[in-house]
């Protein structure tokens, strides 16, 4: 509860934030602080400088017609109230009321907790992460952003500015999660974005979190569904396939071992497909 001492600076522009990150090797950006501060309280993280980016705004959750623009500093509560589908469902299930009020999506994905909810959804929705740094602006697909346990594509002098989610006509999506009874993080979370026509799957993307070291796409399960009729048999096959998809990246612990989470990825894929196509 008593973090190690650090310096603190508040910045008023993205450029200023990047300058600070460039100047200080041990600097960390402070958005909502709901991933970083818990680690600092236990002295698991000991940055020398916190760069508070609260003044930057970046809180929009806007429907731009062709897609949604979500500011990096949008809180989970704001997203739950103003977005829709899987993204809103996932945001509404993060932590608790208090955490959702202040935790931000940018902070969440930069932290890349393997059990975090939004990454699976962003992967399934084909989101792009917009990033700025000393090298200028770039964007990266969500499925390429999450690399490993607490590891992303973000460089040490870069800042996430927004997330773009393309609108796809005729698509529906859903997120299904089994929450850890203590932390309420995802033991497994599966997001499905699907387009069906006359009961058949035209296009589908599936993202998994919790069961894996980082959020991943389940391409084997997608392939099973692609073009197939949405029925119990095909869903069951997809649920088998997703277990193979994630077999090499499984995460587990003493209470909820890898094989259980692997099996649950199948169970919750089934639930997510049914919810998305209901």
């Amino acid at each position: 509860m008593w973090p190690k001492s650090f310096d603190y600076i508040r910045v008023n522009s993205v450029e200023e934030a990047i300058t600070q990150l460039n100047k200080h090797e041990d600097a960390k950006l402070l958005a909502g602080g709901h991933s970083l501060l818990p680690a600092m309280k236990l002295r698991l993280a000991e940055p020398a400088l916190l760069v508070d980016i609260a003044p930057l705004g970046l809180t929009q959750v806007s429907d731009r017609g062709h897609g949604w623009s979500i500011g990096a500093m949008a809180t989970h509560a704001h997203i739950a109230a103003n977005a829709n589908g899987a993204l809103a469902q996932a945001a509404a299930g993060i932590g608790d009321q208090q955490v959702r009020n202040f935790g931000t999506i940018g902070g969440n994905i930069a932290h890349a907790d393997p059990a975090s909810d939004p990454p699976a959804v962003l992967v399934a929705l084909g989101a792009k992460i917009y990033i700025r740094g000393s090298g200028g602006e770039r964007n990266v697909a969500a499925e390429d952003f999450f690399i490993d346990l607490f590891t992303t594509d973000l460089l040490s002098d870069e800042i996430i500015t927004s997330i773009y989610i393309p609108r796809k006509e005729g698509h529906t999506n859903a997120y299904a999660k089994m929450a850890h009874p203590a932390s309420r993080y995802a033991l497994v979370g599966v997001a499905v974005d699907i387009c069906t026509q006359e009961g058949h799957c035209r296009e589908v993307r599936i993202g998994v979190t919790g069961a894996t070291t980082h959020a991943v796409r389940a391409s084997g399960a997608e392939a099973v569904l692609q073009g197939a009729e949405i029925n119990d048999g095909n869903i069951a096959q997809a649920c088998e396939a997703i277990q193979a998809d994630i077999a090499d990246q499984l995460l587990g612990d003493a209470a909820y071992p890898e094989d259980y989470r692997q099996a649950m990825a199948g169970v919750f894929l089934g639930r997510a497909i049914r919810a998305a196509t209901a």
Binding site: L42, H180, A182
Partner: peptide, 13 residues
Amino acid sequence: LLTGSMLDYAMPR
């Protein structure tokens, strides 16, 4: 102790 915090020790809610 693997249940060393409220993140891991599941209290009834």
